[in-house]
Structures are given as C-alpha cells and as structure tokens.
C-alpha cells in the first residue's frame, strides 16, 4: 500500500507544482533490485516550503533526483507543472530542468575555473539567451543574494557562504517554479547558513516552491511542511 501525502492546505492536483502518483524508483536488475523509493503519492502545492528529513540512505537523494527530473520513476507517474514528465525524452527533460527547476547542492558545485558571474550565467546559456542579457541577469541575481561586489571573483576566492549564495543565484536566475535544495546549509557555519536560509525563504515568499532536503531540525523547523523519509517511504510529520 503506497503512502499518500497530501498538502496541508488541501490544494488539488491541478494547482500543484509537483505530483507523484504511485511514483517509485528501483535500481538494479530483478535479482539485485534495490527499491530506493517505494511507490509514493505526493502533492506539493505551488508556493509551498517543504522540508524532507531522514537518515542517510533513506532515499532522500533519489526523491530529489526524481523531483528534479534527473532520474525517471520506474513505476507510477510524476506530474511537474501539470505535465507528466515520467516518459519525457532526455531532450525534453533537459528543457524542463532548464526552465522550471533550480538546484542547490550541499557542496555548491560551482565551476572552479569560472567567475561567479559566469557560474550564474550557466542556465541562461542553455536557455539560448544572448551573452549581454546573460551578463546583465547574472549580475542582478548576484546582487539579489548580496554578492554584487563579487561578480568577477572565482569560487576559490569566496567563502563557503558566498559560494553557496553564488549557487543560489545560479538556481534562481531563471526564476524557476521549483527550487530543490539538498542540504544547502550542510557545509556552512551557522551565520552563513542563516543567510542562505533567509534568501531561500525570501524567494519562497516571492512565490517559488521550495523543497529542502536536510538533516538539520532547525532548518526543518523553518519549513511550512515537513516530510520524513525512511527506507524509501515518505511520511508526513504532523
């Protein structure tokens, strides 16, 4: 029996940004199959701020990959922004990631040899936007996370908090409908972590749906909705 997790506000599937319908992910062949994400029902309302907690190996990353269109569910469906993306071709999934989703990772994943500005330009490059416009929007995004003075800095010359803010600017520069953040404060000190969370919350208040994966109860406590992942099963905290 699949676990069903509804939105607390009771929003229906039509207005949700992300809907998992019996979506599961199994790795490996039939003899050594690992069910990383058991068939799950989840509806995430637009503008929600959701935290997903759980121990290592519980399936959080698999959930993030499915939600981020980096992986396809092996069972069920995934509706993103009203479209069933479960069977999208690679080209279509790339377009969805580019247009709809922003990613923030624990280790920032910045390109070492590129300036902060060029890092932030990256999604715009794959959107086919002209270079002058890319530079302008990247500078604005960096300014919005408090890094207007750091546009020409390379990641190696930035603190961890600043690097994560560059990553945030990169995720937000296209104004994505869904922001997926995997342990965004995991590598940061408390002050830097707070600053990053403030930016995420501010973005959420502006209408961006946020799904946070975290081990930190303090971070989780700032979410409007909290889910727990254990052994591939997603449950709602009440």
């Amino acid at each position: 029996m699949a676990e069903t997790v509804q939105t607390p506000s009771g929003s229906d599937v039509e207005t949700a940004i992300a809907v998992l319908d019996e979506a599961g992910r199994t790795y490996g062949g039939s003899s050594v199959a690992v069910e990383a994400l058991k068939p799950t029902n989840l509806t995430v309302a637009r503008g929600d701020l959701v935290a997903v907690m759980g121990p290592s190996g519980s399936g959080k990353s698999t959930l993030l990959h499915v939600l981020g269109c980096l992986d396809r569910p092996t069972t069920g469906r995934y509706l993103l922004d009203g479209r069933d993306v479960s069977h999208f071709a690679d080209r279509e999934l790339a377009a969805v990631r580019n247009n709809t989703i922003g990613f923030v990772f624990q280790r920032f994943h910045l390109l070492r040899d590129e300036t902060a500005q060029r890092n932030v330009e990256l999604p715009l490059l794959y959107a086919g936007i002209a270079r002058p416009e890319r530079r302008k929007r990247a500078a604005e995004a960096l300014a919005s996370v408090g890094l207007a003075e750091r546009v020409t800095h390379y990641p190696g010359k930035l603190s961890g908090g600043e690097q994560q803010r560059v990553a945030l600017a990169r995720a937000l520069v296209k104004r994505p409908a869904l922001l997926l953040a995997d342990e965004p404060t995991g590598n940061l000190d408390t002050a830097a972590g707070h600053r990053v969370l403030e930016i995420i919350e501010e973005e959420n208040r502006g209408g961006t749906t946020v799904i946070l994966i975290t081990h930190d109860p303090e971070v989780s406590a700032r979410a409007r909705r909290r889910l727990t992942m254990r052994d591939g099963v997603l449950t709602e905290e009440t």
Partner: peptide, 16 residues
C-alpha cells in the same frame, strides 16, 4: 564528471 553533471542539471542536453 561533476562539471558535466552540473551542466546537465542546468539544462544541457546530451548533444550540448
């Protein structure tokens, strides 16, 4: 690998 994975996350297609 990290760079390629990141580019794919940000919308790069296989052909890109």
């Amino acid at each position: 690998y990290d760079e390629v994975a990141l580019r794919r996350c940000e919308g790069a297609r296989r052909r890109d």
